[in-house]
Amino acid sequence: MLGPLTPRSRFIEVFLKAFAQTNRPRCASTSRQPEHIRTFISENTEVVGKQSLTPEIKLRLFTPTCRFWRERPELWPFDDPYWAIYWPGGQALSRYLLDNPAVCRSKTVLDLGSGCGASAIAATLCGAAHVVANDIDTVAAVATHMNCELNGLQPPVCLSHNMIGSPPKGFDLILLGDMFYDEALATSLHSWLDHCIRTHGTKVLIGDPGRAQFEEHRIRRLLRQLAQFELPESVREENYGLTCSSVWCYHPELSGP
């Protein structure tokens, strides 16, 4: 992910707020070898599967039983662990792909702000020809590799530079889950996605549970809803006011001439 999301789980809110309130310097994840990061993730996450919209996908995530749910945040050696949470928009997006595999079959797919890599995994399971997972947190790339292994899959190409605003590549499909949590980011995404679509005819799918920053942004009028999913009871209980999560398709032509 690229930054904090709201509304958050009751547990997650307390957890991430503790990280945000510390002024400690973050150790760059590149300062550790990937094998050390893998070991750290393995020892400090739990394999979770059934309590989500995609019970067929296993992921290493933070749960209340994990050490750093209770540990002092200043002991955490990396950037804030947004990759360790399966956000509702990503759940809806991954569920939609698994229910509609033709959407990404034989396509080149970019999972932007990929986090735990669930949508990249779903695209791979659906037969995508080539998948790229992009997240500016390099620890997320290691987590994505480990999550692919959990599901018996070859990992996607993982890129850690910020692709928003870069020259658009020729992806057939771009996936964005839970990326519309900040006005400035939403605006930069709007411009970049429009450029990708007009340059390469890229299809864009967005997963979001209806956060205010998403519903109130002008990009909202350029979207058509493709599906809505009721969140599992456990996810509902952990999130403020969220009962459903939806998938949208971006249509810039809806803005008119």
Rank of each mutant, 00 (worst) to 15 (best):
Ala84Arg: 05
Glu71Phe: 13
Ala123Gly: 12
Ser94Met: 01
Thr54Gln: 03
Phe62Ile: 08
Thr63His: 02
Leu16Asp: 13
Ile57Arg: 00
Arg32Met: 14
Ala102Glu: 11
Val132Phe: 08
Ile57Asn: 00
Asn23Gln: 09
Leu61Glu: 04
Arg95Glu: 01
Trp83Glu: 00
Trp83Val: 00
Ser114Val: 05
Gly127Gln: 01
Pro25Trp: 04
Asp111Gly: 11
Leu93Glu: 07
Ser106Val: 01
Ala129Phe: 07
Lys50Leu: 11
Asp80Asn: 12
Asn44Ala: 06
Pro34Asp: 15
Ser119Trp: 00
His36Glu: 09
Leu75Glu: 15
Arg70Glu: 10
Pro25Tyr: 05
Ile85Asn: 01
Asp111Ile: 08
Arg24Gly: 07
Cys104Ser: 08
Leu110Gln: 11
Phe15Ala: 14
His130Met: 13
Leu125Lys: 09
Lys58His: 01
Gly115Asn: 02
Glu43Ser: 03
Val103Thr: 15
Cys116Asn: 15
Cys27Gly: 07
Gly115Ile: 01
Val131Asn: 03
Trp76Phe: 09
Leu59His: 09
Tyr82Ile: 05
Val132Ser: 12
Leu98Pro: 12
Ala129Lys: 15
Val47Asn: 00
Tyr82His: 14
Ala84Gln: 11
Trp76Gln: 07
Gly90Val: 11
Val132Trp: 05
Ala123Asn: 02
Thr108Asn: 07
Leu125His: 09
Val47Ala: 11
Asp79Trp: 02
Tyr82Asn: 08
Trp87Thr: 13
Arg72Trp: 02
Ile85Gly: 00
Cys116Gly: 13
Pro77Ile: 06
Val109Leu: 06
Ser106Gly: 07
Ile41Met: 04
Cys66Asn: 08
Cys27Ile: 14
Phe19Glu: 14
Thr45Pro: 00
Thr45Asn: 03
Ala120Lys: 01
Arg72Phe: 06
Ser119Glu: 11
Ile85Ala: 10
Leu61Tyr: 11
Arg60Tyr: 05
Pro88Phe: 02
Phe15Lys: 09
Thr39Gly: 14
Gly127Trp: 04
His36Phe: 14
Ile57Pro: 01
Ile57Met: 00
